[in-house]
Design a protein around this nucleic acid. Structure first.
Length: 257
DNA sequence: ATGCCCCACCCAGTGGGA
């Protein structure tokens, strides 16, 4: 099985790139984030022509997550028990069982700045996700993947000095990630196609991609039954090139039997 | 060259992203 995660930064703006990528990469399951579209506006027909079913959770202009699968989409769940809102619920998590594995596509709140109320919201959201994952990990194979908006270590940003005082690297955010791993999930670190760091995000501005000044903030957290099947994991930086890319690259993971 | 910000709102400039 091949699965992937991709923050597409608007599924409508990215549709030509998404369809081309699906046609060449052929993942069985794709977890999407920042679809930025209500569920009834999702381009289900277009991806359906490539053989994919869709489970989408969207709210319009902001956020939005989805799972595409050509190996089934069972027991779809939007959000999770105890998920906080700001104050209303936001479309940041969707789960479904595909070929025996529960995939959960997550778009963690950005946090903005450490003194912003959105930062505290981000920490509450991560803590609630951790609690909600305990029974999921006990229930069966699970993959929790998406845009976590946290760089797990200083090696996961292009220059730690630049990020002092910023979100994405603070000890409480990293502790929240560690607490999620501690429920029994492994960080499946992808290999980079270029350079030493498997960055997944590069700012559109100032030629950051071309200088490989990126961050590893898109993560694949897998339970032991899945992590033990991983034969390859790669950041597809080719998808960050060319005309009209997302600012995030997909991560593609292959599983053996 | 991989090549120097983009998205949705909806037409103009604004808020959000990380």
């Amino acid at each position: 099985m091949r699965f992937a995660t991709w923050n597409v930064n608007s599924v409508k703006a990215r549709l030509p790139r998404l369809l081309e990528w699906l046609d060449t990469t052929k993942p069985d399951v794709l977890c999407l984030q920042e679809t930025k579209v209500a569920a009834d506006g999702f381009p289900s027909d277009e991806v359906g022509e490539l053989g994919y079913g869709v489970a989408a959770y969207g709210q319009g202009r902001w956020n939005g997550v989805a799972i595409l699968s050509r190996v089934g989409l069972d027991d779809v769940r939007r959000g999770f028990p105890g998920e906080p809102g700001y104050p209303d619920p936001e479309a940041r998590a969707i789960g479904a069982v595909c070929d025996g594995i529960r995939f959960i596509s997550v778009y963690v709140p950005n946090g903005r700045t450490p003194d912003d109320p959105h930062y505290e919201y981000k920490l509450r959201w991560l803590a609630a996700l951790r609690d909600a994952l305990v029974p999921e990990v006990a229930a069966g194979p699970v993959v929790v993947t998406g845009d976590y908006n946290v760089a797990p270590t200083d090696d996961d940003v292009w220059d730690p000095a630049v990020f002092i005082g910023s979100t994405h690297v603070t000890p409480p955010e990293r502790a929240a990630l560690a607490a999620i791993r501690d429920v029994g999930l492994t960080d499946v670190v992808a290999r980079p196609l270029k350079g030493d760091h498997p960055f997944t995000y590069w700012d559109y501005r100032a030629g950051m991609f071309h200088q490989n000044k990126g961050m590893r903030i898109d993560l694949v957290y897998a339970s032991p039954a899945v992590a033990g099947r991983v034969t390859d994991a790669v950041v597809d930086r080719e998808a960050r090139k060319g005309k009209g890319p997302s600012d995030h690259a997909p991560i593609v993971v292959d599983l053996g039997d």
